[in-house]
Amino acid sequence: MSLIADVHLTASRRLTSLRVPPTVAVSFVIIALVIAWSLAPGLFTSLSPVNGIPADKLLAPGTAHWFGTDHLGRDLYTRVVYGTASSVTSALIAVVIAAVTGGLIGLLSGFFGGWVDIVFARLVDVLLAIPHFLLAVIVVTAIGFDTTNAAIATGVSAVAVFARVMRSEVIKIRQATFVESSFLLGGSRWHILLRHVLPNASRSLLPLAVLQFGLSILVIASLAFLGYGDPPPASDWGLLISIGKDYLKWPWLVYAPAFLTIATVLSVNRISRWLRKTD
């Protein structure tokens, strides 16, 4: 709406956008910690994630064992820290696959239109028609059960989302006045595609990619939970929860890894929302 506030609100929003809201700051801290855990788990714990002390099994959380211990006497905090790398990197792989493939499909089908668009649009329709978790399950079944494959499957199942968003952005931008203007000023088709359409369309892909990163953590955790990821003694968060569900009398085995999964995804979502708003 073209009322009063617009001019001023955008001006003041520009000012506030330089400051990071406290919840976003907290989210960045959590993500930084998670990244640190996955890069150098050894810095954060001196215990072994694989070998436990049978005498210390199923201890409740305390000062010695922050998250308690599991049925084999392994420190749960250590297992969570060591499980971070594969839980987070695999989500990253998934997002990269989905964003690159989906982005490319959307870019080409939106920019060139015609039969390219028709072919890709039907492919995207098909990918969307199969429930994405089911799709991830059959893809991981087809290529074999391990965490990397689960990440690939998750990526494939999210291609359609990126393709669809990219396509609509590209179509919107292709019709923008500045694109025609560049054409009049001598810009070739490829120049316009690469220098005008792609940078503008990618801007809206960033918050989506961040959001999809959070979703991928959840999907990969779900696949691990069903046993389609790396087998034990790996300690992916989904797998930890899956093991914990058989020991519900010692609920920290579920709650600790679950809490971390939720905190990570929640932070990622918060950052995505913030990116969308400041754009």
């Binding site: 959070g214 959840l218 955790a221 779900s222 939970f225 989904g238 929860i241 899956s242 914990g244 569900k245 519900l248 579920v254 679950a258 999964t261 939720i262 995804v265 929640l266 979502n269």
Partner: peptide, 9 residues
Amino acid sequence: SVPNFVIGL
């Protein structure tokens, strides 16, 4: 942000 198996558990 909550995996649905966690909600279930």
